[in-house]
Simulated scan of single mutants.
Amino acid sequence: MTGPFNDVERSIFTAKEVLSEDYQPDQILERDEEIDEYRHALEDVLFGRTPQNIMLYGRAGLGKTAVTKYMMDALRDEAAKRPDADELFVHELNCNGQTVYSVVRTLVNELLPEGASEFPKRGLSTADAFEELYAQFDRRGGTHFVVFDEIDHLDDVDTLLYELPRARSIGHITNSKVGVIGISNNYTFRQGLSPKVKDTLMEAEISFSPYDASELRAILADRVDRAFVDGVCDDSAVARAAAIAAKDRGNARQAIDLLRVGGEVAKKRGDDGVNDSHIVEAQDLVQRGRLRNRIRDQTQHAQLLLETLAYLEGRGETPARSKTIKTRYERVADSHAVDPLTTLKSIQNHLSDLHMLGFLQRTDRNRGESGGRYYEYGLDLDPEIVLDIRDEIETERDR
């Protein structure tokens, strides 16, 4: 009996997983300077000293998370060989959509002894959660690095970054040491922290710049060797994928996705190899898919503001001032049965973040003494695609 999958063969791909988002390479290419900075910031751990706090900045797809995983694995291996180093624990959390309480609760439950009851989801305060966290750190002992990915998405991040870095110095923990690693897509994240938090952190800062076309070609060539059958992926395909990604945001993830989708296009057509024409066809598919993921990663109110700007853009009413955007945003929020943000300042903060992330264009207007100075915003995306994606997200929520 024949079935729909009987004639499916590998043909082009040998290890397609190498092109997936969760693939962690054994070697990190084109990030030697960042790795060297990271190494200097981490080396105190090898001598049993209190770890330094570290903040990583850069847009999505620039290798921040991959480099961090690589460095943590290497540090664990080296610490195990060093007589002066404490036992090393690494805790990785994504802060998107989380609260300080939920983040601390997750850490507590990760540290609790086997068979212990989980820390409750509700009914206790954030202070209670921190108290239990400190008790579990000291019960375990050793050195703990807590990696907070997308830390800029965390509500009340000042509380978290004020508590953990000073926990040992003020006596909350005595038998353990804690270091914080924050990963942020927002280059201005530190500017929004309170002065006392900035003084407490005393962190090393590592900034990840966009890849250029040459760096992306090197990364892609390595993935091609692993992912595709020998000789099926033309150099022209690698060059085109690298050029497209470099011109856009210098994003390695985008370049790798172009190769993967280009391979899928070639396979679907029945072609024997992947060339630059397949990459060109893949470009629209990848851009739409990545935009969908980027919009999904935003908070609910940020998504509603993007939807608002898409409506205004479609009606030719942009660029628009934040007051105008707020009025329309309130109607959009009401249409989704969501309580809107109530202050103009909160709207302006979200608009500023969306501009920084590349979703919006911002124009600085100066009308002199009579008109004052203000910003106007417009959508830097196709409004129809934004509205389609928002409709998909809301439809999934309603299921």
Rank of each mutant, 00 (worst) to 15 (best):
I279Y: 00
V280Q: 03
V280E: 02
E281L: 13
E281P: 12
A282R: 06
D284I: 15
L285N: 01
V286A: 02
Q287H: 15
Q287A: 11
R288A: 06
R288H: 11
G289H: 14
G289N: 15
G289Y: 11
G289Q: 15
R290N: 15
L291N: 07
L291R: 15
L291D: 04
R292Y: 11
R292T: 13
R294N: 04
R294D: 02
R294K: 07
I295Q: 00
R296Y: 04
R296G: 03
D297H: 06
Q298Y: 00
T299E: 06
T299N: 10
Q300S: 07
Q300K: 14
Q300C: 05
H301W: 05
H301R: 01
H301F: 11
H301M: 05
A302N: 12
A302F: 08
A302C: 09
A302V: 09
A302H: 13
Q303F: 08
L304V: 00
E307K: 02
E307D: 01
E307R: 01
T308F: 00
T308I: 05
L309A: 01
A310C: 08
Y311K: 14
Y311R: 13
L312M: 14
G314W: 06
E317Y: 12
E317Q: 15
E317C: 13
P319F: 09
S322M: 12
S322C: 10
K323G: 14
T324F: 08
T324A: 10
I325G: 03
K326Q: 10
R328N: 03
Y329P: 02
Y329C: 03
Y329I: 08
Y329H: 00
E330Y: 08
E330W: 10
E330P: 13
E330F: 11
V332G: 01
A333N: 04
A333W: 09
A333L: 10
D334W: 09
S335I: 06
A337L: 10
A337Q: 05
